[in-house]
Amino acid sequence: MDSFAEFHVPSLYIQNKGEKSTNVALRLTRASHRYIIRFTGGCANMEECDAQGLYELFEDSFAYFSGAMLFGGTRMLKISNPKKVIPGVTEIVARLKKICPNSVSLGVIPRTQELKLTDYGLCVATEPDKDCFTVVHPEQDICLVVQISPDHVASWDAEAEECAEIINNLRVFAQWQSLLISYNGGGVTEREIVNTAKRGWPVLLIEGSGRKTDEYARNKKFLEENPCVHVAQKNPDSIRDKLYELGAIERPRIKIVGKNASTA
């Protein structure tokens, strides 16, 4: 078994409705900063222009983050060319993990179809009409698959619901802070933005990312009614300033030169 340590192998947990994993909750607390960021937003339906520069945007904003990161836990691949990764929000966390080694990443995947082992990993969904299939992302610390029961699948909304449960436990019982970051996204993302705002938990909408996130970032009435919802522009300086303001990252005490020089 020791040889596995040489590779990055996510721990895989499967949870039925109504159950709670104590081990998953505890593993998140290995992060050195008591702060959890949930990433939500677009994947398969994101326009190519909205995906432009997506990874660099977050990589340049997140240096020194040492909390926990919660995301969809999947990777989308082309059926016609399975070696091609389809850009999406679920790719961000694996990249951030490389520049934030003290963080912990957890992917939450609702089991919406039968699981299938393929040459490209554990397949959780297939969408032939979009020429894509979805596998468990190989680069994450922990992956939690949620289902109603072994014989009953869950809806895609189960991901956001489970994430809210995990965040609630950390906030209430371990005094963590949380932030939902939304980029692009459709109906499921919309419900998560609204439900998180209703709870009064901090939300950061990336304006200019497209679709539902933009719709809410430009909705003055919604922003006025929900002071916990913040808006950052689609550039690293704006996002990083918000991360400082919301306590996700400590302001550096030394002058940073290079990419983040303007924030020092």
Binding site: E19, K20, S21, T22, V24, A25, L26, T29, N169, L170, V172, F173, A174, Q175
Partner: peptide
């Protein structure tokens, strides 16, 4: 099983 909420209190 052990409740996650109680286990988390230990991490305070």
């Amino acid at each position: 099983g052990l409740p996650a909420s109680f286990a988390l209190m230990g991490t305070l």
